[in-house]
Nucleic acid binder design. Sequence first.
RNA 1: GCCACCGUAGCUCAGCCGGUUAGAGCGGCAGUUUCGUAAACUGCAGGUCCGGGGUUCGAAUCCCUGCGGUGGCUCCA
Length: 549
Amino acid sequence: MSSSLAAPGPALELIASLEKELVARGFEVHSSPFGYYKSFKVAVKGHPLSELSREIVAESAAAGKEDVSEAVKAEAKLVSHWHILEPTGHMHHLSIKDGKVSGYPFEGHDRLQKFATYEMAKSREAKEEPAHVRLMQELELVDYEPGSDPGNLRYYPKGKLIKGLLEEFIGERVREYGAMEVESPVMYDFEHPALKSYLARFPARQYIVQTPNKRAFLRFSACFGQFLIMKDMVISYKQLPLPLYELTRYSFRAEQRGEVAGLRRLRAFTMPDCHALVSDIEMAKEELMVRFDVAWGILEDCGLSMPDDFEVGMRVTQDFWNAHKDFVVAYAKRWGKPILVEMWSEQFFYFVQKYEWNFVDGNDKAAALTTDQIDTENAERFGITFTDEDGKKRHPLILHLSPSGAVERVLYALLEKAAAAAKAGTPPMLPVWLSPTQVRIVPISEDQLEYAKSLLPRLDGIRADLDDSNDTLGKKIRNAEKEWVPYIVVIGKKEIEGGTLNVRVRQTKEQTEMAVDALRHRIANETRGRPSRPLAEPAFLSERPIFRG
RNA sequence: GCCACCGUAGCUCAGCCGGUUAGAGCGGCAGUUUCGUAAACUGCAGGUCCGGGGUUCGAAUCCCUGCGGUGGCUCCA
């Protein structure tokens, strides 16, 4: 019994020899080739977990899977030690018993405790659907696409607007940091020698594509594309550190069916990926902290609170810790609150150090956004070199940064944060620069419609739309609030006569009088330094179709 | 991938221990209303009850199977 069956030929031989052997031992034997018994039942009385053990192989048969079993064996030997490192440099060793983490007084650090428990105990207690799933649908941003594969989503105009803005923004910041933007293919040859050994460790997660003449896999990150570019580049030590950037739309991972969830875990996702070549470990540490600040600024300006909304998972090898303890401590100090450190007895992966910033959501689930790694292996594997001061070719180290994490996860975090705000009694909303409608103009009755229309050109550069339905005022306000519109402008007789705007501000729940220019300046201030796009749908609500309901 | 639960109108859901033409609210459309800060009124239209197969005189309802979703397990380079 196996999920990876041999060809029919060997099976027939096997049946024949089994029959012969059994007859020789005096059994009465009937045999039939497979295919004759497509339908039968095997009832096994045993422990429920026995269902997880499906593969039954003779020992010698396992030899054919050397690459895989080597990695599996190595990983099984991996010993992790867990710690909490305080910004002061104090280290607390953690232990776990019955799903409870101890060794550190977590008072005031609830989410760090949840994150540590999530990582160490793998405990999942959520019973509810994640809050962002309902929100992404109700706000007509993103939805499931049953016509595709699980974890491949459809974006409605408002969702595409937000995603596009995030992508533009992240790209701008990474280019400002100095990264050169490139683009690489989404699929790669299974038989490419440089990719083969890398892939052999993770054979089960790829989407497979049959091209006209080869089997290919869809990329799960920008690593290959950038490494293959880098191996052909001619690089001097003077040019280091040297960062390349690509926005992968998409990266594909054929996650197991039950692991796919909303915007949190997808099979196709948009990954900003920035690899930098550095000459040695000292430059790596220095550059890592430069990128730390870039990533910090991006998440903060996307509307997340730094560092409050995140918990650090820092993974280091024992050797790296021994040699660079001061660096890890300085990192914790820069972060400003305690971090979770996982220490590995040996280096089993291609990196010696890695960190992630994890968002802990309302169901106590953690999702990694920003991550950066110090890779000591792949330059050699892919043949990436630079010429050093002595004119000799050397392999650089490679830093793997995703400055924001997957763009979908940024949206996930924003929606979960909004849901948490709603639960706490404050109005849920997106940052103004990401709000699909920034200003909703609401005439009280038809008499004010023409005047209301004349305001649209005066709000140039702002996503302002107009509710031209003949709903009552209360209904129009309600509809705008349901869409999380940050500024609702009500136009009645008074406003036409006075020439000012009556603005209902979502953030503060207040109503204020202000001039058109004052509103413009207010929004310009709130969106400064972020990209802008026009409305994703017609300005008049009566001209908008419904995408979901 | 494994286990459990779920899938009825555009949306949210009722109906489901088998039995008339499958219901409601919201939304849509038409008309009335022209309103001062989170839901005006009346009428009309709208359904492959997720797909396929089976049991039955008869299936939205029971069984099998596929697809999709949620939770848990596993996993998250």
